[in-house]
Design a protein around this nucleic acid. Sequence first.
DNA 1: TTGGTTTATTAAAACGTTTTAATGATTTTG
DNA 2: CAAAATCATTAAAACGTTTTAATAAACCAA
Lengths: 338, 338
Amino acid sequence: MRATIKDVAKAAGVSPSTVSFIINNKPVPISKDTREKVMRAVEELHYRPNQLAVGLVTNTTNTIGLILPDSTNPFFATLSNQIEIKLRQKNINVIIGNTSGNAKITREYLRIFSDRCVDGIILAQLDFEDEEETAKCQKLIHSIDIPIIYVDRVADERNHYSVEVDQKLIGYLATNHLLDLGHTRIGCASGSINLNVNSSRYEGYRTALKERKLTPDPNLLFCDSLSIECGIKALPDLLGQNVTAIFAFNDMIAYGIYKECRNYNLSIPGDLSVIGVDNIVLSDIIQPPLTTVAQPVTQIADYVVKGMLDLMKIPNIEFEHVKLNPILKVRASTMQAV
Amino acid sequence: MRATIKDVAKAAGVSPSTVSFIINNKPVPISKDTREKVMRAVEELHYRPNQLAVGLVTNTTNTIGLILPDSTNPFFATLSNQIEIKLRQKNINVIIGNTSGNAKITREYLRIFSDRCVDGIILAQLDFEDEEETAKCQKLIHSIDIPIIYVDRVADERNHYSVEVDQKLIGYLATNHLLDLGHTRIGCASGSINLNVNSSRYEGYRTALKERKLTPDPNLLFCDSLSIECGIKALPDLLGQNVTAIFAFNDMIAYGIYKECRNYNLSIPGDLSVIGVDNIVLSDIIQPPLTTVAQPVTQIADYVVKGMLDLMKIPNIEFEHVKLNPILKVRASTMQAV
DNA sequence: TTGGTTTATTAAAACGTTTTAATGATTTTG
DNA sequence: CAAAATCATTAAAACGTTTTAATAAACCAA
């Protein structure tokens, strides 16, 4: 049986209050003698406060909830890992909820985390196929009154603290790189275009084309999901449109294209240039190494954690909207158009 | 402000007990009328029970803690993802602790999870460099009296429920495959040999060699960590020993070897056969597709979840020790020795 | 000495639930 | 019709903490 504060109190011959004051270092005068007695009892009984009880009375749990689409995706895996490590140093624990990008599950986790009295929530996607669903989530977020930070996949709203990467710029950088290499028919392999991430990247793509007086061809946009399968499906479709390069909206999609290129006996970048987004660890290892637009994960995590700590201190602090810049990593999957 | 059970009781004109009985479907007679009044009040106030309070009195939190070395590693990412999804269906949440394979952090998480009254702990590594540290962990586990399941990286002990993959068989299968192809000087790129996973795999390797009357050469064992870096370091070392094939103790190590082979202008499998362990998603996409020994992640997760649910129902149920078989996936990174 | 501080400690309320035992009201039974 | 049984509801204790206000003892100044 776990020792309680009463057990400690009894063992030390003092009251529970005294024990509480001592273990929490409250600014209350305590005689040297009792302090020692209590500390000894704590040691001997291996006493540790029950965090449920502590949470109930203090109304803080030193826990934050992290809601993300898929921790299997290396980008989110790294992000959540970094967040966890940084928060642990502040004695804050992380509960994770994977939503598969599903609005219902997102709401479920919002409620669950709220029921558990987390001190804050980090939300990595609030933006769904169905606008109505998105609205429901927003409403819920508003009603559960917990500090919240949006990260990475940010909806268009200014009522929350947010940390994001400039998604348009991602599209712009990727497309510009391909244009610089002389490509003009550039396919896009995207996730659902109803999602902000994707539409923003696509917008960046269009901007880059227009700057060079090129007209974006809507047939060059293939939409599915941000996964390997998308790449596999996109390749034949886009080849049919005679593209010489593909802008994959993330590295996973690019991997799918790599895989399918083998079936078509196409060489990258000889027959097709490919550029991705995220700069997953393996993109440097895959053959040929993948040119990609990196999102500064560590920096994101830094800002998110900093923001969360601020928000926990001063709940109605003025919201910041951090926007970070992506970085183009040129490797060997893109080359001059012939 | 969140509504409490008292608020609901007041709104419905009944006592808190009545509300509690109703929302928890207790086998207590309740008039149709009050039931309706209460349900209406619950709806209107958006009442949801505070889980801290519930946990405090019921002594269950519907939470389990998952302790693993590194959720960034795709194998563990998939494992934890699967576990989370399956447990969510039983209304159980998962708290994750990443330890980086560090015994101190492991103990810290054990204590934290215990403080939070998790209903069970799934522990994916209990086996460290330093035996003393391992012992300390064991002792701690014993003292916090919470259902626990060991998974994947299991220490040599029979006092706990465990789910693991036959690690010796992994080594044996990998080595046998290379031997079948005519390789005889086979290097090993391993994580620390003091860890059970690695020593077992190495033992399987030795067994396979001996079965063919070959003497294992200790110089062919390179030890570092189960990461890309290990592969990068291992390659020059093992090439110095004139190996024709390398058994990488996981796929990440194999990726490191792939990467480094480019610097040495070596072709896989032409100049060097490589086999990995884990069958990470990307191993099928990397060029050449990696031959590897797969661990049945989904099955592991199934057994772990099943075991945990059993254990939560009957804490002193007889311990099971599930041992699953690995599966050899032959792809294109291994070929006949010349 | 008296009364005011300071020092050290504690009793008791509070946090939001569940659960046991008690209480009334109603119905059934003999 | 009284006693017993059933039905519907509630009061109060409990879970393990923190925190406020109260108490008691020791010290000090006038």
